[in-house]
């Protein structure tokens, strides 16, 4: 493992929504659902980005323009050179869930790290019981992977809610926790989204009777190395880059320094 990125090409870019693009990047290292890479633009820096999927030549990365590196990436073209390191981190425990029901709850860009898990469940559909995806987006135009929903729905259940609708939106309006009110579900839950969303979703899952050891959250932290050296991603001495980003709610709740996402969760 090193700080030297592997130089490779952006093969394809698709505009997902107003602030997010998906990049198909040539890369041969294999990965597990939930892992992330560090993507570099030399001269601008590096950013940790979840692997949103694999394709024959590499990996898909869905990137929101948030700052220095990500904005630069949004200005790049197909064929441009980027650097990749990784994959890093602990994946979603997809094998532990075999034979059980799986509820996936995503908020905003949080759908990206769950996408490989969705693909895995679809490809191995018979290994799982019920599979349900609940997705909350800020507005209809901010939903990721819209072109894929129809295909997903052939194998798994999916429900969507948006904070604010628009003229064309005929679906539900509200918070993702409202979708949870409508379902009766037992089994495992995988959650990824903004900090406040993870807090309210965790509370709701506990209310619904989910076991703390069967709820998994993907946490985001400042990361400067991805290898457990720079210290930035630590929560109570656990390195999110090595020990996470996926943690069980049980483990996260017993951390002395309680993750901000779980403030108020009992």
């Amino acid at each position: 493992m090193s700080f030297i990125p592997y130089l490779t090409k952006i093969e394809k870019i698709v505009q997902e929504c107003n602030d997010t693009k998906t990049f198909w990047v040539e890369y041969s290292n294999s990965f597990n659902p939930g892992q992330f890479v560090e993507i570099s633009v030399l001269g601008y820096g590096e950013a940790p980005i979840s692997i949103a999927g694999g394709y024959e030549n590499g990996i898909m990365l869905s990137i929101r323009a948030a700052g220095n590196v990500t904005k630069k990436l949004h200005n790049m073209k197909e064929g441009d050179v980027v650097g990749i390191r990784g994959p890093f981190g602990k994946p979603w425990p997809v094998n532990d869930v075999m034979g059980e029901n799986l509820l996936m709850i995503a908020g905003g860009i949080g759908l990206a790290p769950l996408r490989p898990c969705i693909m895995h469940a679809i490809e191995n559909r018979n290994d799982y019981g019920e599979v349900l995806l609940l997705y909350g987006a800020r507005s209809p135009v901010q939903m990721l992977y819209r072109r894929e929903y129809e295909e997903w729905r052939k194998s798994i259940d999916m429900d969507i809610i948006v904070d604010r609708g628009d003229e064309s939106w005929k679906g539900k309006i509200g918070l993702v926790t409202e979708l949870m009110d409508e379902v009766d579900f037992k089994g495992y839950a995988f959650v990824c989204g903004p900090p406040v969303m993870m807090k309210f979703v965790s509370m709701k899952l506990l209310e619904m009777g989910f076991d703390k050891s069967k709820i998994f959250l993907s946490l985001e932290r400042n990361m400067k190395c991805g290898m457990g050296i720079c210290g930035h991603c630590a929560i109570a001495g656990k390195y999110v880059c090595l020990d996470g980003p996926v943690f069980s709610l049980e483990d996260a709740m017993t951390m002395l320094e309680k993750p901000v996402e779980l403030e108020g969760v009992l």
């Binding site: 030399l42 601008y44 190395c225 210290g231």
Partner: peptide, 20 residues
């Protein structure tokens, strides 16, 4: 104490350096 930040510098000719 071993924490570090990582950042890039860039020159006019497009060459540069990643530093910590």
């Amino acid at each position: 104490c071993h924490c570090f930040d990582v950042f890039d510098t860039i020159n006019l000719d497009g060459s540069g350096e990643r530093k910590r």
